[in-house]
Design a protein around this nucleic acid. Structure first.
Length: 112
DNA sequence: AACATGACGGACA
DNA sequence: GTGTCCGCCATGT
């Protein structure tokens, strides 16, 4: 862990700036963090934070508006769904979120 | 210092 | 429009 680099700090800062009822993508966070192609690192970094911090990592999803989570933390995804729904975000059974409606930044510009 | 891995993204088939 | 492969950047070993 040790987010010594400015990048990690930027990601955390940005995530903390995400308003409730909104969601964003790794790509956007990475872009704002200073590395538009480092989307992987955003999620990778979040996986280190999870509930250990008070970061709304739940609002950060992939470009498809879907929670990837390769690890298999299905409970994490389920928790995520509930959290987003409580914030006013519609989440499908497949953990799909409408980025065109709930996209925080420019996420609404693109979709499948 | 180098290699391998990873909550992704975009391009190509 | 869907599926698959390659690539980018940072972290961990």
């Amino acid at each position: 862990m040790k987010q010594s680099n400015n990048f990690s700090l930027n990601v955390v800062e940005i995530i903390k700036k995400i308003p409730s009822g909104k969601v964003t993508t790794y790509g956007t966070v990475a872009l704002l963090a200073g590395s538009p192609r480092a989307a992987r690192e955003v999620g990778y970094l979040l996986h280190s934070l999870t509930e250990k911090h008070n970061l709304p990592w739940q609002r950060v999803i992939n470009k498809k508006g879907y929670i990837s989570i390769r690890g298999g933390d299905i409970n994490l995804k389920n928790m995520q769904k509930l959290l987003l729904e409580k914030e006013g975000v519609e989440v499908s059974e497949d953990f799909m979120v409408d980025l065109e409606k709930y996209g925080w930044f420019g996420d609404s510009s693109r979709k499948t």
